[in-house]
């Protein structure tokens, strides 16, 4: 099977070959966009992502996997839908946390807890700096590794690491208000050779 870069290189001479890139990755791009926006907007983002990618294919970096590049383009296009995305975060409800688990939760109190958690996550995501949020969602929803996120966003891996650290910590505190305090205290409390204490 050809790698993505081979297909893209072929499409430089034979433009129609680019359709293969679409067939491979369109669903993943759609899924990523639909989670950030909604299914309708995701249709547009998916379509436009491949048009932009096609226009820029000469500048593709030659990686075997084009997905980081495509998700990076989709991430840029999602910016045009900032208001829609903000609304999506605001409307995050318990059922967004996964239907199976909510069905399994029988106590009303636990369900309330899930609603509150969903609201807090939504609020935290909405307030993250855009670059931090992009890194976090490419990592968590785009299933990219650090290198992939770095390539998608065109930033160094170190920047990805710090953005992810910061975003995860903010999310952690949003979910569990006691978390940050405990981390700080643990840091002061345990001094041992274990890397966990650092």
């Amino acid at each position: 099977m050809s790698t993505d870069n081979e297909i893209i290189e072929r499409s430089l001479h034979s433009a129609g070959a680019f359709a293969e890139v679409f067939d491979r990755h369109a669903r993943t791009v759609h899924r990523y966009a639909a989670r950030r926006l909604d299914a309708g907007a995701a249709d547009d983002v998916m379509s436009e992502t491949f048009l932009v990618a096609f226009e820029r294919r000469a500048a593709f970096d030659g990686s075997h996997d084009a997905l980081p590049w495509l998700l990076g383009i989709a991430t840029n296009l999602i910016k045009k839908h900032a208001r829609l995305e903000a609304r999506a975060w605001k409307g995050l409800v318990a059922s967004d946390l996964g239907r199976v688990d909510i069905d399994a939760i029988e106590q009303a109190a636990a369900r309330l807890d899930a609603s509150a958690t969903a609201r807090r996550i939504g609020g935290a995501l909405r307030r993250l700096p855009a670059g931090d949020r992009d890194a976090l969602l490419l990592y968590a929803w785009g299933d990219l590794d650090y290198e992939g996120v770095a390539s998608a966003l065109g930033v160094p891996v170190g920047t990805v690491r710090s953005r992810l650290n910061r975003a995860r910590r903010k999310l952690r505190i949003a979910i569990d208000p006691g978390a940050a305090r405990d981390e700080e205290v643990d840091h002061g409390r345990i001094v041992s050779a274990s890397p966990d204490s650092l």
């Binding site: 669903r27 759609h30 899924r31 989670r35 995701a42 249709d43 995050l92 996964g98 996550i121």
Partner: peptide, 16 residues
């Protein structure tokens, strides 16, 4: 943890 919780959010979004 916050990452696995985040991964579950809208994980059942429908296919295009």
């Amino acid at each position: 943890d916050e990452l696995s919780l985040l991964r579950r959010i809208r994980s059942e979004v429908r296919e295009p």
